[in-house]
Simulated assay, not measured.
Amino acid sequence: MIKKDIPVYSIDKLSLFKQKDIQISRFAPYLAVHKNLHLAHKHDFYHLILFLEGGGTHDIDFHKFPVQPYQIYFMIPGQVHSWSFEGHVDGYVVNFSPSFFHSFMARADFLGQYPFLNGIVEESVIDIPADIQPKVKHYFEVLLQESETDSTFGLDMVRAVLIQLFITISRLSDAEKNRQASLHNYTILKNFQKLIEVNYNTLRLPKEYAQKLFITPNYLNTICRQLMGIPSGEVIRNRIVMEAKRQLVNLDLTVAEIAYNLNFEDTSYFTKFFKKQAGVTPREFREEEIKRVKRANSRLGSIR
Rank of each mutant, 00 (worst) to 15 (best):
S232C: 15
K137L: 10
I167Y: 12
G91W: 10
V125I: 09
V67G: 05
K245P: 02
Q68L: 08
G78T: 14
A296C: 04
K135Y: 00
I6S: 05
D59R: 12
L300F: 08
R159A: 09
Q71L: 11
D59I: 12
A244K: 09
D59T: 13
R171I: 02
L48M: 15
T202E: 06
I2K: 10
V235S: 07
V142C: 12
T202D: 02
Y73C: 14
F74C: 02
Y30H: 06
L48D: 06
P98Y: 00
H81C: 03
Q113I: 12
A296L: 15
F27D: 03
P66W: 05
T187G: 03
L213A: 15
L14N: 00
Q145M: 02
G91S: 11
I196F: 09
F85C: 00
Q164C: 12
I236T: 07
L213D: 15
Y9H: 04
N261R: 14
S302C: 02
L253D: 09
G78V: 04
V142Q: 14
V80F: 04
N250V: 09
Y9L: 00
F62S: 00
I290P: 05
A210G: 01
K294W: 00
A130Y: 01
E86P: 02
N250L: 04
Q71E: 12
K291D: 01
S82C: 07
T267G: 04
Q19M: 07
D109N: 13
Y114L: 13
I290Q: 15
K275L: 11
G91L: 11
L195N: 09
D127E: 08
A296Q: 11
F51M: 06
E197M: 05
A175L: 10
A40G: 01
N118F: 02
F274C: 08
P231T: 03
S82F: 03
Y114Q: 07
F96Q: 06
V125S: 15
K276T: 12
S10R: 03
D127G: 03
H81R: 11
T187N: 08
R246I: 10
Q79Y: 02
K4I: 09
S182C: 08
